[in-house]
Amino acid sequence: MGVADFHCDALSKLQASPGMDFKNDPRLDVTAERLLEGNVELQVFAIYLSADRGRAKFEDVLGQIELFRQKVVVPGGLQWLRWKEEADEQILTASASGMLSLEGVEGLEGNLFYAQLCFELGVRFLGITWNYANWAADGVLEQRNGGFTELGRKLIEWCNGSGMLLDVSHLAPAGFWELAERSKRPFIASHSNSAAICGHPRNLSDEQIRALIAMDGRMGLTFVPWFVRDGGGAKIDDMRRHIEHVGALGGSKQLMFGSDFDGIETWVEGLEHPGKYADFADLLLRYYPEDEVKGWLYGNALAFLRTHLPSSAGS
Rank of each mutant, 00 (worst) to 15 (best):
M164E: 06
L165A: 03
L166C: 05
D167R: 08
V168M: 05
S169Y: 00
L171E: 03
L171G: 06
A172Y: 00
A172I: 07
A172S: 14
A172F: 01
P173F: 04
G175F: 02
G175S: 02
W177C: 03
W177K: 06
E178V: 12
E178W: 00
L179S: 01
L179I: 09
L179M: 14
L179R: 04
A180K: 04
A180M: 07
E181M: 12
R182D: 02
S183Q: 03
S183I: 09
S183W: 05
S183Y: 00
K184C: 07
K184P: 05
R185V: 11
R185K: 13
R185N: 11
P186D: 07
P186Q: 10
P186W: 01
F187A: 06
I188H: 00
I188K: 00
A189K: 03
S190H: 08
S190Q: 08
H191N: 08
H191D: 14
H191E: 11
S192W: 04
N193I: 10
N193L: 08
A195S: 13
A195N: 06
A196V: 13
A196H: 05
A196E: 12
I197L: 13
I197N: 01
I197A: 01
G199K: 11
G199R: 10
H200S: 15
P201V: 15
R202W: 02
R202K: 08
N203R: 13
N203V: 15
L204F: 01
D206W: 06
D206S: 11
E207A: 14
Q208Y: 02
Q208I: 11
I209R: 02
I209V: 15
R210G: 02
I213E: 03
A214N: 06
D216H: 11
D216C: 10
D216L: 14
G217C: 13
G217Q: 13
M219T: 09
G220K: 11
L221A: 12
L221E: 08
V224P: 05
P225E: 09
P225Q: 08
W226A: 13
F227C: 13
F227P: 05
R229L: 01
R229D: 00
R229P: 00
R229Y: 00
D230G: 11
D230H: 06
D230L: 15
G231Y: 05
G231Q: 13
G232D: 12
G232A: 15
G233V: 12
G233M: 13
G233R: 06
A234K: 00
K235H: 07
K235F: 01
K235S: 05
I236Q: 11
D237R: 13
D238S: 05
M239C: 08
M239L: 14
M239A: 12
M239W: 04
R240L: 15
R240C: 13
R240H: 01
R240Y: 01
R241I: 07
R241Q: 10
H242L: 14
I243Y: 06
